[in-house]
């Protein structure tokens, strides 16, 4: 009789504790472990690149400001989402995202495909939104253009990322600070190296419109501009109306 068994169980604190652990562990193990063993969970995308140091710094600002509280980065497999935002998101697109930023609330629109949608200046203007869209309830992020970006410790950031599996090369780590500066300073000596290291499609610009300094706005816009553009995989065999974005510049 199960009940009698339970009467016994509930007289032993240790037994009860062990039972709880056993019963509560099953679900998580069955659902999480196979995500590492079933290969098709994360699609193949040979053209997938890692974030440049500047983009990574921008991602950290995105996290810091809590943009994920209002914006998802996940186009679901639903007709209206694909038609509004673009091809549905693939798992591989967030393969290097520690942590992922799929979000759980859309007070603002999805941002998974916002990269390349607007000019840099348009993007930075969106960050003081009511000047352009009076209906918006997004906070104004004016301080981002005032704060200069902290870039000296970017090598440490890349190293930490490498430790958890993001394939940054030794060279990338060593030059992280210079690359961050270069990507936001077109024409500088460091600028061309960025493309060399991260691929010809990497955008090198004065993202905030001012070439002489590297601000937090530079980093954030660089990150927003690369959203959905680390790989073209999502554009390949989906019936989405769009074509893959052409390389810029």
């Amino acid at each position: 009789m199960p009940e009698l068994f339970h009467r016994k169980l509930e007289r032993s604190a240790i037994g009860f504790v062990l039972a709880i652990i056993a019963v509560a562990s099953v679900g998580g193990i069955v659902e999480i472990a196979p995500l590492f063993t079933i290969d098709e969970t994360v699609e193949e995308a040979p053209d997938m690149r890692v974030y440049t140091p500047l983009e990574l710094a921008g991602r950290n600002i995105y996290i810091r400001e809590g943009c994920y509280a209002c914006h998802s980065q996940m186009v679901r497999t639903l007709r209206d989402e694909v038609e509004r935002y673009g091809p549905y998101s693939l798992a591989v697109e967030s393969k290097y995202d520690h942590p992922m930023l799929w979000g759980s609330k859309r007070t603002g629109p999805d941002l998974a495909r916002v990269g390349g949608k607007y000019s840099d200046f348009g993007m930075s203007r969106i960050l003081s939104p009511r000047e352009v869209v009076p209906e918006s309830n997004m906070p104004a992020y004016r301080w981002l253009a005032r704060n200069s970006l902290k870039i000296e410790d970017l090598p440490l950031h890349l190293e930490a990322q490498r430790a958890i599996g993001v394939p940054y090369s030794e060279e990338m780590i060593e030059n992280a600070t210079r690359d961050a500066y270069g990507q936001a300073s077109p024409g500088s000596d460091s600028a061309s190296n960025v493309k060399e290291r991260y691929g010809a499609e990497t955008q090198v610009r004065a993202f905030d419109g001012v070439a002489t300094n590297v601000t937090e706005m530079d980093a954030l816009v660089a990150y927003l501009q690369v959203l959905g553009r680390l790989t073209d995989a999502a554009f390949e065999d989906t019936a989405a109306p769009e074509e893959p974005p052409e390389p810029i510049e």
């Binding site: 196979p34 063993t37 079933i38 290969d39 497999t77 007709r79 694909v82 549905y88 019936a239 989405a240």
Partner: peptide
């Protein structure tokens, strides 16, 4: 889940195939 694969189900549905068909129909 079954190690390196999973049960596909008798209906053999896949959310991606469904939405792609919907887009074609649309």
């Amino acid at each position: 889940p079954l190690g390196t694969t999973y049960t596909k189900g008798l209906l053999d549905v896949d959310q991606r195939a469904i939405v792609e068909q919907q887009l074609v129909d649309a």
